[in-house]
Design a protein around this nucleic acid. Structure first.
Length: 283
DNA sequence: CTCCTGTCCTGCCGGC
DNA sequence: TGCCGGCAGGACAGGA
């Protein structure tokens, strides 16, 4: 589920309850998420104040007052639930996959829930930027270091289809299956086009398309297909603004095709993932 | 090295 | 209604 906009939505939801607040206690109920939560995780982190709350790609990073901290990845189905002290109890079904519970000094509970357990929770050092997943990670698409020339350099090195390459976090951070499809549609680029064959103005268009779709999705609170929720439990609504994703056989925005003739938006499989595109507008 | 496939895990949806 | 196969927003190992 969570791509950059969903993760950013969650990060923003965490700010008011976690930033500059002390974590009193951490209860890890299940350690066997992806990569396993380190045994000492709770002891290492609890008792400290959160001094910064960042996002890098699809990861949320919490930096503690001693400069170290932790990383959180929501995987496919991860959610963060925030419960003020005294919240009414949830049903067993809602709490079954509550794997980690952070209790803040003011007794607010921050719960990491993840049915599929593809999520990750791990420690990072002061120089997390030069550690494992982050050191090789591509630029932040909404930051200053993402532009045509930077993207072009990366795309030139690849022979895989452009859609597949956009999913590579070392090319650009935070883009996943939904927003790769949407950005390619906006830029008018066919998803099977070879990465290295996307050149010049198309690259500029792709940069703008990625930025546009991510910004719009953040404003909408992300896309809720099944799992994504804001930290208050409400849904994002960008899924209502999809141009092609999950719209096989339907028309794209502003479409003038005869659906009966064209069959509308197509769905193909690339590198094991569904790709949606408009064969008329994407070349 | 690059690229693709399979795998991790659970839940849900559609078809029969 | 009930069961079963297929599919899902991600990341990564391993094989070609």
């Amino acid at each position: 589920m969570p791509e950059l906009p969903e993760v950013e939505t969650v990060r923003r939801g965490l700010e008011p309850v976690m930033l500059d607040r002390r974590i009193e206690r951490i209860e890890v109920r299940r350690f066997d998420l992806r990569g396993r939560i380190p045994k000492n995780f709770a002891d290492d982190i609890a008792g400290q104040k959160v001094s910064r709350l960042l996002r890098r790609g699809k990861y949320i990073l919490a930096e503690m007052e001693n400069g170290e901290g932790f990383g959180l990845h929501l995987g496919m189905s991860g959610r963060i639930k925030i419960q003020p002290d005294g919240t009414v109890a949830e049903s067993p079904k809602q709490t079954t996959h509550d794997h980690v519970v952070f209790t803040m000094a003011d007794k607010t509970k921050i719960i990491f829930n993840d049915p599929r357990r593809f999520g990750m929770l791990f420690r990072v050092g002061k120089k997390w930027d030069s550690e494992k997943p982050f050191s090789a990670m591509g630029p932040e698409p909404l930051g200053n270091s993402f532009n045509g020339p930077v993207l072009e350099k990366k795309l030139l090195k690849k022979n895989a289809p452009i859609k597949t390459v956009l999913l590579d976090q070392n090319v650009v951070a935070g883009v996943g299956n939904i927003y790769a499809c949407e950005a390619l549609f906006l830029a008018g680029i066919h998803p099977t086009k070879k990465s290295s064959a996307v050149r010049g103005k198309k690259i500029e268009a792709l940069v703008r398309a990625i930025q546009k779709v991510l910004n719009l999705a953040i404003e909408a609170g992300g896309s809720t297909l099944r799992d994504h929720r804001k930290t208050d439990g409400s849904e994002g609504y960008f899924q209502h603004n999809f141009s092609v994703y999950d719209r096989e056989g339907r028309t794209c925005p502003g479409c003038t095709c005869d659906l009966a003739k064209t069959g509308g938006i197509r769905r193909i499989t690339q590198a094991g993932r569904s790709t949606f595109y408009c064969p008329r507008k994407q070349k």
